[in-house]
Design a protein around this nucleic acid. Structure first.
Lengths: 146, 146
DNA sequence: GCTTGACCTTCCCATCATGGGAAGGTCCAT
DNA sequence: ATGGACCTTCCCATGATGGGAAGGTCAAGC
């Protein structure tokens, strides 16, 4: 089957299939006499594997490792688990990072009147880093937000 | 002051200062006779603003908007708040996305023995999308994890 | 005065996964 | 044979960041 059908069946775009071939995540498929790439069922299976791994946020390099383990019938599940746990840790680190941004911003938002006047703790915090020379109408309690 | 000192004082690397100038986030500074960029205190203030906004995950484009509002003494705090709330929503969306990946992977990890044997629900899920032809030692309860 | 090292300048390249699009070839149905 | 839907390769762009080369400048110490 041609690359378009492979893309449809696997959920991986034709562009990305060519890219994965280029970075050696998959082997170059056979070519028809017209030069078109020709995919078999097993290739679709492989592409679906890649798709699911991408959906879990694995990088191409990690997927390469996972595919080697997949093909290695003498693999130790401990190796797969280690890869997965490393990725879980990375995901959770990223999540915490974003969470901290969101929390900080939500504190500022909560103290912003959001009306027609210019006074705005969000802008003031960005400008002063929270060290306001002149306290605002927010009162003494504002200090605790830092 | 030269770009190096500006970088040290603001916490923005010299590379990034030049980049922000290139993408018109900041105005090109005055130049000394030797061609060196020359920064004033006000520029440092601006760079610190940018730095804090970046730390909150705002994109350069959003920061551009924030800086216009910062300079606009007739701004409405509602406009700032709207920008901030949009960003909070984007951050939370990203966070959920990552959370879902982490949760899915953690379910799989929890069911992987992680020993020397090849049997591994992580690999199997990637390969089959959870539709295992032959149930594993994990038992009937495994289905609930999907 | 000359050397040395720490600056500064511009320019190009790389990242990572993804897509857009051009220019040109192929295949099939009408 | 014509047109449209494919396919091919190649180049470019994204966003924020850094690396590094080639070359100019400055200040301190000899």
């Amino acid at each position: 089957m041609n690359i378009g059908e492979a893309a449809n069946l696997s959920g991986v775009s034709a562009k990305m299939i060519r890219y994965y071939e280029e970075v050696a995540l998959i082997r170059p498929p056979a070519r028809n006499q017209n030069g078109y790439r020709s995919y078999a069922e097993s290739n679709i299976h492989e592409l679906k594997f890649i798709r699911r791994a991408r959906d879990l946020g694995f990088t191409v390099e990690q997927i390469s490792g996972l595919m080697h383990l997949w093909r290695d019938r003498s693999r130790a599940s401990a190796d797969v688990k280690r890869l997965a746990l490393e990725h879980v840790a990375a995901l959770e680190a990223k999540q915490r990072e974003i969470q901290e941004m969101a929390n900080a911003l939500k504190h500022l938002v909560a103290n912003c009147h959001g009306d027609g006047r210019p006074d705005c703790p969000i802008i003031e915090n960005l400008a002063d880093g929270g060290n306001h020379a002149s306290p605002t109408h927010l009162g003494k309690g504002f200090e605790k937000l830092r």
